[in-house]
Nucleic acid binder design. Structure first.
Lengths: 215, 215
DNA sequence: CCACAACCTGACCATCCGGTCAATAAAAAA
DNA sequence: TTTTTTATTGACCGGATGGTCAGGTTGTGG
């Protein structure tokens, strides 16, 4: 657990959004703590300290630890779904998948904590988001598979299994968030620079797009 | 947490290997529980129940929960290192990387728990295996990068960044263990069949090997 | 058979953690 | 200003958990 500084407080704003602001403060702290310690390892006290609020205050805004956790998991899921926009309306696989890789890599860089929380949740058997997997994610996946299949049918890319391609995209992009610590350690202990992130995106796109015969 | 049956007991064997056998029993149970609940969520009582031993007996063989955990993490690491054999002495990238993908996919299928424990450990900042990352893993990685670079220099594959290729191999193969639950849910709730595993291996090899210009 | 070592385990303890609550303060409404 | 709603927080509680230990059992070497 990193003993880093607590989540920075933003400007007070009008007194009416006390609720929204404190919820934001708590959610940000919770995302970080859940990512670094897991659900079982995280404590409300730790989250409270990082948010700069007394523990009892957390329970005023979020009834239980699980409620708070559920909210954190939902957030990253929404963000990922939005990245789907890159996929649709693309004229060809190189454009669509290329943009999707860019979008997901950007998310891995800007929301590494959320990605880790999601990964842990799934690894534990998705106890609180099983319904998401069965409904929203399933529909989303089916839709994207149809898009890819259309590209294949039109001869715009090689006839690879669309599902396994999707999994490869998820695995590769999220790896840079979930295994960020390992990557950093193998990078002389330094976080990837702007330039290195650009190189990663280029490398991944090159290999995958050539791999599916889309270039 | 799956309330599945406890780890099956093997034959008694000679009285002298009581120690080895019980350690095996405990380690197998621990691997599963740590994978499904995380370090913080796992309890010694749960591990004991799954191993079919009283809790106090666990502490007879493993002083602390952390000792037990450390042993579990080390195991999967050793197994992965062994898969490196596929890499070396290969005449060309298609053979070497193809065999490595096969080996790592097989491990994802046979040791999904260990893979999850490793993933969680790294996501939490590698509190107990940081030294592995900095020494063994770093050296292993450097060695493999050299092998790949040699292939590139000999014109046997496209000039892709060897490091990012390695990360893609790790990400993709381990995804099928770490996100096995998600994959199963998207597969109508059914675990992948023998045939589906074969298809995955084929798909992954096809895309990556073509992606690096090795076929 | 004896003595010693290895193994086993129920009962116990100190600590920690999620959650509650009552009392108070601060805003907003009246 | 008075009333009502919303936000704040220290103190507390019940339950769970990692770990201990003393006394017992089993197996083995002499």
């Amino acid at each position: 657990m990193t003993k880093s500084a607590q989540v920075s407080r933003i400007r007070p704003g009008r007194r009416t959004d006390i609720r929204r602001e404190n919820e934001r403060l708590i959610l940000d702290a919770a995302e970080k703590v859940f990512a670094e310690a897991g659900f079982g390892g995280a404590t409300m006290q730790l989250i409270a300290d990082m948010a700069g609020l007394p523990k009892a205050n957390l329970h005023y805004y979020f009834a239980t630890k699980e409620d708070l956790y559920r909210r954190v998991v939902s957030q990253i899921f929404e963000i990922w779904l939005d990245a789907a926009a890159s996929f649709d309306n693309a004229p060809d696989p190189a454009t669509g998948i290329g943009a999707y890789i860019d979008a997901k890599m950007d998310i891995s860089r800007t929301h590494p904590h959320g990605s880790k929380v999601w990964a842990t949740e799934v690894m534990h058997g998705a106890p609180v988001i099983q319904d998401y997997l069965e409904t929203t994610l399933k529909h989303w996946t089916d839709g994207r598979i149809a898009v890819i299949q259309r590209w294949i049918d039109k001869g715009q890319m090689a006839p690879v299994d669309p599902r396994h391609l999707l999994y490869m995209l998820w695995a590769t992009t999220q790896h840079y968030a979930d295994f960020g610590h390992q990557i950093e350690t193998l990078n002389a202990g330094q976080p990837l620079s702007d330039r290195q992130w650009a190189e990663v995106k280029a490398s991944v796109k090159t290999i995958i797009l050539r791999g599916i015969g889309a270039v």
